[in-house]
Computed example of a mutant assay.
Amino acid sequence: MAIDLKMPALSPTMEEGTLAKWLVKEGDVVKAGDLLAEIETDKATMEFEAVDEGTIAKILVAEGTDGVKVGTVIATIAAEGE
């Protein structure tokens, strides 16, 4: 079953951010703790880590996209065998 990766809230007041850079590409295998992307808030650039493992099936938000709302699905991870 595919897992949705959602735009994280990197601070208590964050409502949206910029997906600055993907550190993975479709087809990459990731495990918990791997860095997936760099996300810019109005105050800092933070790294977004995987909490699940699988293969990056689809990147839905291109790097450099501004105004990505917290909770927006930005990519999907396919489980082994999908």
Rank of each mutant, 00 (worst) to 15 (best):
A20F: 01
S11F: 02
G33W: 09
M1H: 13
E40W: 09
P12N: 09
M1P: 10
V30S: 05
D66N: 14
A57W: 09
P8I: 06
D42M: 12
M46G: 11
V73F: 06
T76P: 07
A37M: 01
G64V: 06
V73A: 05
T65M: 03
E16G: 11
K69N: 15
A79E: 14
A79F: 15
F48Y: 13
K6L: 09
M7G: 07
E63W: 04
V51K: 12
T65E: 15
K43Y: 12
G67P: 14
D52Q: 13
L19V: 11
M1Q: 13
D42Y: 04
M14W: 02
T55S: 09
G71V: 07
A50N: 05
G54A: 01
A37E: 00
E49W: 01
S11T: 10
K43E: 10
M14D: 13
L5Q: 00
L36P: 03
K25P: 11
V24A: 00
L10Y: 12
A44D: 07
I3C: 02
E47M: 07
V70Y: 03
L36E: 01
A75N: 01
E40D: 10
L19I: 04
K6A: 03
P12H: 12
E15M: 03
I77V: 07
A79P: 11
E80C: 11
V61P: 08
E47D: 14
F48T: 00
A37K: 00
T18N: 01
L60K: 09
A78N: 13
G67W: 03
K43M: 01
A62P: 11
P12D: 12
V68K: 00
E16F: 09
E63H: 04
E47F: 10
A57E: 15
E16L: 12
A37N: 00
G54P: 08
T65C: 10
I77R: 07
V29W: 12
L10N: 05
G71T: 13
I77A: 08
L60P: 03
A78V: 11
T76M: 01
L23H: 03
K69I: 11
E15R: 07
A2D: 14
T45A: 12
A78Y: 07
W22T: 00
A50S: 12
G27E: 07
A9T: 11
G54M: 09
A79K: 15
L10K: 04
G17Y: 04
D34H: 10
W22E: 00
T13R: 02
A9C: 04
K31A: 07
I39F: 06
M46H: 12
T41V: 09
T41N: 13
T76W: 04
M46Q: 12
A2K: 14
K25S: 06
D28M: 05
L5K: 08
D28L: 05
P8F: 06
V24W: 02
A62N: 14
D34I: 15
D42S: 14
I56S: 08
G17F: 00
L5W: 00
I59R: 02
D66I: 14
A62G: 12
L19F: 03
L35W: 05
K21E: 11
I74N: 06
W22C: 01
I56Q: 03
K25Q: 13
A75Y: 04
T76R: 02
A78E: 15
A20Q: 01
E63V: 01
L23Q: 04
D4T: 11
A44W: 10
M7V: 02
I56D: 00
T65P: 09
E82P: 05
A50K: 08
P12S: 08
A62K: 08
I77H: 06
G17K: 02
V51A: 14
